[in-house]
Design a binder for these strands. Sequence first.
DNA 1: AACACCTGCAACCGCGCACCG
DNA 2: GCGGTGCGCGGTTGCAGGTGT
Length: 450
Amino acid sequence: MINNNGVLVARSDDLSPDHGEDGGSGVGLKKGPWTAAEDAILIEYVKKHGEGNWNAVQKNSGLSRCGKSCRLRWANHLRPNLKKGSFSPEEEKLILELHAKLGNKWARMAAQLPGRTDNEIKNYWNTRVKRRQRAGLPLYPQDIQKQAVAFHLHHPNQTRPSLSPPPPLTQQFSSSHQRKPNLFSSPLSLFNPTSISTTSFLPSQFHEFKRFRGNNNFGFTPPVSLSNNPQPQSSLFSPNFSNQLQPSSTFQFNSGNFDLNPPPIVQTPIEPDGLVGSGSIFPIKVQLPSIQLPQQAANTADSGATGDYKLTKSNSGLLDALLEEAQAMASSEDSKRENKRELDQLFHDALASESAFSQNEMKLKEEPKDEINSVDDELSSLLNIIPPTMSMAEWGYSDSGEISNGQSSGLTEDDIGLEMKHVASSLPASNTSDQDYWNLTNWNNMPGIC
DNA sequence: AACACCTGCAACCGCGCACCG
DNA sequence: GCGGTGCGCGGTTGCAGGTGT
């Protein structure tokens, strides 16, 4: 319904049920764009009462907005020290890194990007997805891919991947009205270079990250002053950024080091530019210090980390798919030892496939050899351990740009399963040490994994 | 100039989690 | 243990401005 001011307002049947919150009856609550007057009211209210208790805003301030709307408006637009304007190249790079690591966890990503909101990041990413899809480019630039592979070489035992349930079908491709495909049958399958797939390895540090009510890191905060308070230096450009990001981990751009937690093996199609936002200029119109305190929050979460892992919602991708497949296979086997061997091999095969694919990709690109060699050794060493069977390197590029094994991409899940079985059985037992196993056979006993 | 199409972004919506009585 | 409530997150929608024809 449009009111006299041309502003969309809620009809009574428009309101989100949302457990009956957001203003009780909800009748008369305004929707649509915020006016300057409303902004002023909200700012004044938060100044006085602080953030949180958003549903009280309507009652106490006379603002005809639901609590959710107020929170959103404050968080995304009115909060002090928000950065506005385009993302800087550094920010874009960081977003890519974080997305490779976290998947569509916008709030967590925002916590690493001072002054940026989850909504901004989400919009940026969706836009990027659309753009890259249109251009037929992969989502992740090559160096992110390298980091992912390099990390696995250096930290094969540090973490185990989450076995995520399939995310909502709408998780990744909503903007273009594409839906998360069946991994093996869709045009966006993992063997399609234009597909987008990520596998999240969510760190234990993020356990219970979501909610921090009752402290001053998240949730309710004391009344804020809109003046520029002394703010922590943006971690983005801090030399100690890696430490701030995740204690005890390393995180370096353009290096073999990565985060404590293995990032997903990202899908690796040909990357013509290999650059982030190449050819673009990314002016930051406003760069104010941020009032966000993400690191504190992260540290709080860190302190509770015990090294256990639990199932988290994440994007599924190549690795998840393989691991899920592996898990399914494992459940049907009698020998626990055999299971471990198989699973280990399957995972290593996934890594090998991706890294081999990376090599393929790098060969196809005309890059300075030095740059390529930065990870070549590591890749080679990985490939040396991995039997070449089923390596994606053996898969050629079809004329259409798709990766194929010489046939059409109409692989069935059964096909893949059989191939993976074959791979598993081809591995000599001596090739993998017990240390390499990630207690894969115990995954079913892990909390949150059923 | 007018129209159609595209793009980016603000805002909304539904869901799930944590807290509390 | 359970239901109600508050809140945050991720996905989706719709609109305004830009661009092309």
